[in-house]
Computed example of a mutant assay.
Amino acid sequence: MSAGFTPQEIDTVYRVIQERRDVRHFVPGPVDEAVIARLLHAAHQAPSVGYMQPWRFIRIASPAVRSAIIDLVEAERLNTAAALGARGAEFMRLKVEGIRECGALFVVALADGREAHVFGRRTLPEMDLASVACAIQNMWLASRAEGLGMGWVSLFDPEQLAQLLAMPDGARPVAVLCLGHVAQFYPRPMLEMEGWDTRRALDSLVAVNTWSNTAGK
């Protein structure tokens, strides 16, 4: 039975995955509303454990709220630098967000009431977070296919951000997503280009039957 995709279409899927980047540098300007609708639809098509669909998207339209989020991120940036010790100064030189410049800003959160969903979560309750991550990845890949950059910012205090956005008890912010136009996409992941870390060899991360029986041995 045919998979329903041409070789060229299959190649495009792998190309989008390979060229997806966590973007920090944006060209100011609005993002087309029809494109935003398509990206949110792509996110909503993500798989979710027990079909719980725990993702919630809050679009930040207010300049004042955007500014308040910037303050939260900056506070956590300083805390992270302190926690990094010897690498703190190196971290502070990195551009870690594009909230000021991006054309559209979203906060993605876990919905409240998740305790009612037991299917697939009885022993692994964190699968709600895994489901939200799948939705974010869908949006990320679709953004890249649309020629837009997207950056995932996780430098914030979740309780403070939840309070800022008047989230109900039990809801929890997961990501601040910066979306917008770019002058160009990074040829490699930015943190790799900056020398922060390198991509590990795949065969060191794949094992057979037991943890230590890796393909690289």
Rank of each mutant, 00 (worst) to 15 (best):
M1Q: 02
A3M: 13
A3V: 03
P7R: 11
V13A: 10
Q18Y: 01
Q18C: 10
Q18W: 05
Q18A: 07
E19N: 07
E19T: 09
D22E: 09
D22L: 10
V31M: 02
E33Y: 02
V35A: 02
I36V: 06
I36G: 00
A42Q: 09
H44F: 11
H44L: 08
A46T: 03
S48K: 01
V49W: 01
V49C: 07
Y51P: 00
M52I: 05
Q53S: 03
P54H: 12
P54D: 04
F57W: 15
I58H: 15
I58Q: 08
I60F: 05
I60R: 00
A61K: 06
P63T: 06
A64W: 13
D71T: 03
D71E: 09
E76G: 01
T80K: 10
T80E: 00
A83K: 05
A83R: 09
G85L: 14
A86E: 15
G88S: 10
G88Y: 13
A89G: 03
E90V: 14
E90T: 12
E90C: 01
F91K: 07
L94M: 14
K95D: 05
K95T: 13
K95P: 08
E97N: 12
I99A: 04
R100W: 08
E101V: 12
C102W: 12
A104Q: 14
L105I: 13
L105E: 12
F106K: 06
V108L: 05
V108A: 11
A109G: 06
L110G: 06
H117W: 15
H117Y: 15
R121K: 14
A130E: 01
S131K: 11
S131D: 07
V132M: 07
C134L: 04
C134D: 01
I136S: 00
L141H: 13
L141G: 04
A142W: 03
S143Y: 13
A145P: 01
A145E: 10
E146H: 10
L148H: 00
V153I: 15
V153D: 02
P158S: 04
Q160R: 11
L161Q: 10
A162I: 14
Q163A: 13
A166F: 08
P168K: 10
D169Q: 12
A171R: 09
A175P: 09
A175Y: 07
V176F: 11
L177D: 08
C178L: 10
L179H: 02
F185M: 05
P187D: 03
R188L: 04
L191G: 01
L191S: 06
G195Q: 11
D197Q: 12
T198E: 15
A201G: 05
A201S: 08
L202I: 15
L202F: 13
L205R: 15
V208L: 14
N209P: 05
W211L: 15
S212P: 04
G216L: 08
